[in-house]
Amino acid sequence: MRKKVVIIAILAIILITLAVAASWSVQGKHRYGGGQNKIAVIHVEGVIAGGNGGNSLLGESGGGDEIIRQLHKARDDSSVKAVILRINSPGGSAPASQELGAEIQKLRKDGKIVVASMGDVAASGGYWIAAVTDKIYASPATMTGSIGVYIPYANWQDLYQKIGIQKEKIKSGPHKDILSPERPMTAEERAILQGMVDDLYNQFVTVVAEGRHMDVEQVKQLADGRIYTGSQAKTAGLVDELGTMYDAIDGAAELAGIKGKPVIKEYGNASPFSMLFGASDKVNLEQLMVRHMENKLPITAPLAMPVEW
């Protein structure tokens, strides 16, 4: 009899706790009090470039396309009410930054709040994508700004002559080998490239002016290519708040009307398999430079990197 009582009591306790857990789960209640209100965190790390980034045995990772896929996932998830873009990037290619910016704007049009949280550095292309978000958070020591565009060019003609290399090209038009490192740039080519840089710069300035609700002329005064600290950027109006990623999460929750502690859904986390076999999530800078040398990436702007990288 005693054995029966003990076992029935144990089973009753187990079944009651399970039933309570089931009813809690059916009601959609959440351990962190957020219910279905999630905040997605998407990381923008390293140089912003188009494409898939690194290839690995078990898939591809990194690159602008991967971030866009993550933005689409966040858009399609009805439980995601806000997105934090954790930016730690010195910039990258103008088209990739522009593409990301456009996708962020679509996400906002779909009713999601997008908040940028700047890490160590969010300059140039990194600032481009931050500028199109609802709110920007930066640490006082974050390096940001670098609003501007450049096209790098090196003339290696003298070096080639010294080592006895003579490269020749048969070209279809006079400007087909523009930016060629084997010869000096002509005045006409310089004018063409300057026109391109000016056009890209104006696009960049317009994005910042619209995103930050500033006058174009006011942005142009700030956009001479210089970098700012987070606190300088806040004074200049390029950043909304000084704070950490957790402040940005709280800010996003407030903007999205999430009460209580929000549920965080992190996108793009490396799986143990990809950590073992995969390429880095960050775009390889050397790879990017090699692509530039091969003339496959004629415009590497806005690209703001310290000389000693």
Binding site: S25, R31, Y32
Partner: peptide, 15 residues
């Protein structure tokens, strides 16, 4: 099944 259901509800609540 019972511990698996317990774990299921715990993970559900954690999202």
């Amino acid at each position: 099944i019972i511990p698996a259901l317990g774990a299921y509800f715990v993970f559900s609540s954690a999202g």
